[in-house]
């Protein structure tokens, strides 16, 4: 089962990928929203169940990525979790309204990340194989 990590910081991508791999995901990575859409397009028949989405990125930011995914019916099964340093309440409301399912503010603990995945029910080994 795939997960897609979208962040312009390689460090953050590695940190998230490490945790997701530990949980049993195969991890794809993208450095901005545009790249992430390309990754999704080339994985149409085996879409990631989860994408973690940073907000501030070059080329295409995370909010626009979320909107693009939500506008595409073929991508509706991808669970979107914002993982970002944007911490204002208004920003969280905006991202949820745009179609993000969850929102995790950096910095976060490893437990918090796993809690959220558990809650979203996207653990590998559960749900669609």
């Amino acid at each position: 089962m795939h997960a897609l990590v979208i962040d312009d910081s390689r460090t953050m991508r590695m940190m998230l990928a490490r945790q997701l791999e530990h949980l049993g995901f195969e991890v794809l990575q993208a450095g901005d929203g545009q790249q992430a859409l390309e990754v999704l397009a080339s994985n149409r028949d085996d879409l990631p169940v989860l994408a973690t989405v940073d907000w501030n990125m070059p080329v295409m930011n995370g909010l626009d990525f979320v909107k693009a995914v939500r506008a595409d019916n073929g991508l509706r099964d991808v669970t979107l979790m914002m993982v970002t340093t944007e911490a204002e309440q208004g920003q969280i409301v905006r991202a949820l309204a745009a179609g993000a399912h969850e929102y995790l503010i950096k910095p976060f603990s490893a437990e918090a990340f796993v809690d959220k995945l558990d809650y979203l029910g996207v653990k590998p080994g559960r749900g669609a194989a």
């Binding site: 340093t85 944007e86 911490a87 503010i105 950096k106």
Partner: peptide
Amino acid sequence: DDVRDAVGELVNVLGGNVKS
């Protein structure tokens, strides 16, 4: 490059929280 990226991410996380 790794070091620059990591330090950049630290300031990014701090910056976002300060902004809030």
